[in-house]
Amino acid sequence: MKNIPISAMIGLAFTAVYFLMAIFAPLIAPYGMAEVVGDVWEPSSSQFLLGTDSIGRDLLSRMIYGGRTTIFIATMATVLSFVTGSVLGFFAAVSGGWIDQALSRFVDLIMSIPSLIFALVVLSVMPTTVTMLILLMGLLDSTRVYRLARAVAVDITVMDYVEAARLRGEKIGWIIFRETLPNALSPLVAEMGLRFIFMVLFVSTLSFLGLGVQPPQADWGGIVKENKEGINYGIQAALYPAYAIATLCISINLVADWILNRTTSLKGGRG
């Protein structure tokens, strides 16, 4: 752990702060999430550190609770997309033949429609609940994890030790989880950071369009939507979520870059 570069340290620190804020939101936030405590768009003061929002709720509290929602949804969706994507990807690579073909062509098809457009099409008939959002984002994004997992696993399945396991008569579950997964883990972990960022951006965009997290529940995209009118009067309320998302995403990027560098240098510095 001594050799962590400064950029990765900064990234780790910021990421940790955001996650801790999300976990302990009710303890940290000075006011309640939907509590109207002041006037409309009050400037920042010692009472309201970031000022108040479009209907007089404390913006700092909204930001903290909003971060909680955004990070929760993004984390769940990332986990879902990783479990689905990597299990299917390994399964396709280990099985080969028509199963591989069928799964891969289906994934190609889903990826041929932009995720946002596909999500909008589905959300036009489905209720916008948090569960629905997680399912939709996770499954749509699992196509990308699938591609990576399959590409990595295809290289692994031709190794002698996998061949040996097959000859021993191991079942497909063993080959996926005991032979392939441990050797494919590092590129997947690095990719996980990028997928998480994508999820944060995705859920914020949907909420901003009014099709994600529904009010009075706070989330970063929604805060922008609620306060966007203020911009025209020179009120910064809608910009704080932008700074929050940017710092969170950049920190995670820094960490992911470091992991990626470390794992690729294990292969002799190629790539």
């Binding site: 914020s204 901003f208 911009i231 910064q236 932008a242 998302i245 940017a246």
Partner: peptide, 29 residues
């Protein structure tokens, strides 16, 4: 470029509206 990748499109939009259209007063929001 890392910074612009890390912000959603709509937020770049509002940041630019705030700084370019409102603060500097050029172009329309």
């Amino acid at each position: 470029t890392l910074a612009t990748i890390s912000i959603p499109e709509f937020m770049i939009g509002y940041v630019l509206i705030y700084w370019v259209a409102i603060r500097m007063g050029v172009f329309s929001s």
